[in-house]
Design a protein around this nucleic acid. Structure first.
Length: 589
RNA sequence: GACUUGGUAGCUCAGCUGGAUAGAGCAACUGCCUUCUAAGCAGUAGGUCACAGGUUCGAAUCCUGUCCAGGUCACCA
């Protein structure tokens, strides 16, 4: 596409210097796809140009149109108000076709560390993690195709009061059972005791409230909560028994999480653990105090005053000298900088932590850390239940990741059987195809929406498999593949187009040509939905072309070859699009 | 209360760095499989772009205010 845009822009600038002795700015020459109710392929917006040279827009359209006609770039043009609609001639179409497979690269490649997932080690993953994993994984691929050097990392929140809860639950109700002895997936096994803890706490709290205690006090004074605090103290003191229980239970969780990662096909180059980082916050605090960036209050707690930045005072270390979340993150980013010397650190974390990352950013800048300008919080909206409320993991498994994955694969299998085509598939292929379609549909449903938006989700309703979905794109891809195989298509060295190109062929060519722009937009905005929306548009354009034109049954060799070439383009670009989204492309379906 | 992000068809979303008569999918209704895979294609119907002002040749898009919804404002993570 860029080649054609450049050609047109060069010519129009040439025109403006010759006719008006002014060179239009390149960026002011906006070329869009012509709306389908009008004649033409690309449309130039002439209003701003007309203003610049003091000419009437319609007259200027005529002048530019004739100039491009004489330059032999377009075959015809029409003018409506200040819109100049251009129809490309076959030479220009050929130029466009010859550059379709190229994708743009950033002129400023960066080393990027991208953190995603960030699970707690006391329970299995839920639907929110699914969105996070898909978003992070796809963004990493997009940035890497755009020319950046991307390193995916994970952080385990593997210590603290929340982790102790499942340990406490196990200690009280576990009776020495194990994932092996019960046959339960190990992360779910641990999560069950987190729920048991929450239930016990609730019962005890209610009993205390009945005795007249305030709800807040009751929650603090429940025996199980007191025991839990004690367990955390023991862990921090390195108590052997506690640490060994912690190791055992975390080990189970890692084992379970790893299985889920494998199913979802996400990976991490390096995994960081909060338990290994949290003590390093102290160094940062003492440095900050030495620089005068941090101050101490009467209780001995260290804080930073960000009121001038429109934020609040933020404590960075407790009065008792222990560090808190934000300080751990400071230590962690420095650790990562030592590991990677990255130009950019991207955090894929839900928007409920927007404030946290603002503060983190400000503190890094105040401390003048090397990486202080490199932080980017890729913030995304919540996956909510249909009534708009948050899912609560301690209240059970309404949005459990593994359950959701199993359900959608099952649903994909049922629908595949319904089509009747499964007769042609082996049992093993049917399983594989169901997995590819089900996971693709789930992935797509999360990625096609702008990251900022909340996604309403109901596990009881099936994820769509028809319409604007991954299976639609996968199906289109399979179609291209089948056609190319049947025709024994060989990749041509140069692309030549015939003189009569059908309307649906032109639409397809233009859609193909805009792939580069989709990558660029997706990379610049950290937004996989740009790719998802693009891929839908391409699959639609291809299907329209397929139904209107015919391909294998065309007699004229040149026309048939042209259409096979378009099919081949579509095949390649759909494959790349799916890859960017992390969605597999099946062989047949 | 302050800050922040959303509000577009019955539902889920595109469009938002200003441009033509606001687009898809789902749901509803109609057609198209003896011809390349019908998980598809073609069509009908469905809109005060939350509301009110402003900026301009032109506003769903930018600015201001209001309303509604989510999120945050811990010595929790």
């Amino acid at each position: 596409m860029q080649a054609v845009i450049d050609l047109l822009r060069d010519a129009i600038i040439d025109f403006s210097t010759k006719t008006y002795q002014t060179a239009f700015e390149r960026a002011s020459l906006v070329l869009e796809r012509t709306k389908k109710e009008h004649q033409g392929d690309l449309t130039l917006l002439v209003f701003p140009l007309a203003k610049k040279v003091g000419q009437n827009p319609e007259a200027l359209c005529q002048e530019i149109g004739n100039f491009l006609l004489n330059k032999n770039i377009i075959s015809e043009f029409n003018v409506i108000k200040g819109f100049l609609n251009l129809s490309l001639n076959s030479e220009t179409w050929t130029l466009l076709a010859n550059h379709i497979i190229e994708t743009p690269k950033t002129s400023n490649p960066e080393k990027i560390v991208l953190e995603y997932c960030g699970p707690n080690t006391n329970k299995p993953l839920h639907i929110g993690h699914i969105r996070n994993l898909f978003l992070g994984f796809s963004t990493a691929r997009i940035l890497s195709m755009y020319g950046h050097d991307v390193h995916k990392v994970n952080i385990y929140n593997d210590r603290g009061i929340a982790i102790c809860k499942s340990m406490m639950g196990y200690q009280l109700f576990g009776n020495g059972t194990t994932p092996e002895s019960t046959g339960i997936k190990p992360d779910h096994f641990v999560g069950n005791f987190y729920v048991k803890y929450a239930q016990a706490l609730k019962t005890e709290t209610e009993a205390l409230i009945e005795k007249g205690m305030s709800p807040k006090e009751a929650e603090k004074n429940a025996p199980i909560a007191i025991a839990n605090e004690e367990m955390l103290r023991k862990w921090e003191a390195g108590d052997e028994e506690t640490v060994s229980l912690w190791n055992q239970m975390n080990g189970w969780v890692y084992e379970g999480l790893k299985k889920t990662y494998e199913v979802l096909q996400v990976d991490f180059e390096k995994e960081y653990y909060e338990s290994k980082e949290y003590l390093k916050g102290k160094e940062i605090v003492s440095e900050g105090l030495a620089k005068g960036v941090f101050k101490t209050d009467e209780s001995g707690a260290a804080y930073i005053d960000l009121t001038e930045k429109g934020l609040d005072k933020k404590i960075v270390q407790r009065g008792d000298g222990t560090s808190i979340y934000i300080t751990q993150d400071l230590a962690l980013i420095r650790e990562r900088y030592r590991d990677y010397k990255m130009d950019r650190m991207i955090y894929v974390v839900a928007d409920e932590q927007n404030y946290h990352f603002k503060v983190l950013n400000e503190i890094c800048q105040a401390l003048q850390m090397d990486f202080s300008k490199s932080i980017y919080h890729l913030s995304y909206g919540m996956v909510t239940s249909k009534d708009g409320s948050k899912f609560k993991s301690r209240e059970g498994t309404a949005a459990d990741a593994d359950d959701i994955i199993a359900d959608i694969i099952e649903e994909a299998k049922n629908q595949t059987l319904e089509t009747g085509k499964a007769n042609h598939f082996s049992a093993a292929y049917l399983e594989d195809l169901s997995r590819i379609i089900g996971l693709g549909a789930l992935r797509f449903s999360m990625l096609k929406v702008n990251p900022k938006k909340n996604i309403p989700f109901d596990a009881k309703e099936n994820v769509d498999l028809n319409g604007d979905t991954a299976p639609f794109i996968q199906y289109s891809y399979v179609r291209t593949k089948a056609l190319l195989n049947k025709a024994n298509f060989e990749v041509p060295k140069t692309i030549a187009l015939t003189n009569n190109i059908e309307e649906t062929e032109k639409e397809l060519l233009l859609q193909l040509a805009f792939f580069g722009k989709a990558i660029e937009q997706a990379a610049l905005n950290y937004d996989p939905s740009e790719i998802a929306q693009y891929a839908l548009g391409l699959a639609k354009a291809f299907n329209r072309f397929y139904h209107h034109c015919g391909i294998l049954n065309i007699e004229d060799a040149a026309t048939k070859n042209q259409r096979l070439t378009l099919t081949w383009f579509t095949n390649i670009i759909l494959e790349k699009s799916l890859w960017l989204l992390g969605i597999e492309a099946p062989e047949k379906m």
